[in-house]
Amino acid sequence: MRESNSGSVEMSETDKPDTLVIPIVEEEAKVAKRQVVSDRIIVKTTVNTEERVLKEMLSQETVEVERIPVNRVVDVVPQLRTEGDVTIVPVFEERLVVEKQLFLVEEVRIRRTTSVESVEVPVTLRKELATVERLDGSGEPITE
């Protein structure tokens, strides 16, 4: 018996065994994996500050109260009324005389005025910046 280059088994006439054994071969592949650092990054943050002056208009409303004596007899209760920017609130009382009369004692006049003022307030504003640097596996910077 002789084996040829092609892997097959040949038998000669002198070899006459009762059984013929042919080896069967099988290959196996195994796959393994591992983690490898190919590159890294570095993130740096910086904070920049900027001084600014904010300007804003502020309004302020003031109320002026003026009491005007009227001292006059009226037939009905006067209603609250507005004349321009003045609100007039009637104040009355009942006085006992031989007959009851409605007597207007005074009017309270309320005037509103508004003033505007420019205000400047210094403030510090912060702005954060991030820079990213990529490094290869050996720690050298990667330039793109």
Rank of each mutant, 00 (worst) to 15 (best):
R2F: 09
E3H: 11
E3W: 13
S6Q: 05
G7V: 03
S8E: 02
E10K: 06
M11H: 11
S12K: 13
S12I: 13
T14Y: 11
T14P: 06
K16R: 10
P17C: 10
D18R: 11
D18L: 11
L20K: 14
L20G: 05
L20T: 06
I22R: 04
P23Q: 06
P23W: 06
V25D: 10
V25E: 09
E26K: 05
E26G: 01
E27R: 10
K30A: 06
K30Q: 07
R34S: 14
Q35M: 14
V37R: 08
I41Y: 15
I42N: 14
K44F: 05
T45H: 14
N48R: 15
E50Q: 12
E50P: 03
R52A: 10
V53D: 07
L58F: 06
V65W: 02
V65H: 07
P69N: 07
V70G: 04
V70S: 06
N71S: 15
N71E: 15
V73N: 06
V74M: 00
V76Y: 09
Q79E: 05
L80K: 12
R81M: 02
R81A: 00
E83Y: 03
E83S: 06
G84P: 03
D85S: 05
T87S: 06
P90G: 04
F92A: 05
E94L: 11
R95E: 13
V97Q: 14
V97W: 07
V98T: 12
V98E: 12
E99M: 03
K100P: 01
L102S: 01
L104K: 03
L104R: 02
V105D: 02
E107M: 04
V108Y: 00
R111V: 01
R112P: 00
R112N: 11
R112S: 08
T114S: 02
V116Y: 05
S118C: 01
E120I: 01
V123Q: 09
V123Y: 03
L125M: 10
L125H: 07
L125R: 10
R126F: 07
E128I: 11
L129P: 00
L135E: 11
D136P: 10
D136H: 10
G137C: 03
S138E: 12
G139T: 13
P141E: 06
I142P: 04
I142T: 13
T143P: 06
E144Y: 13
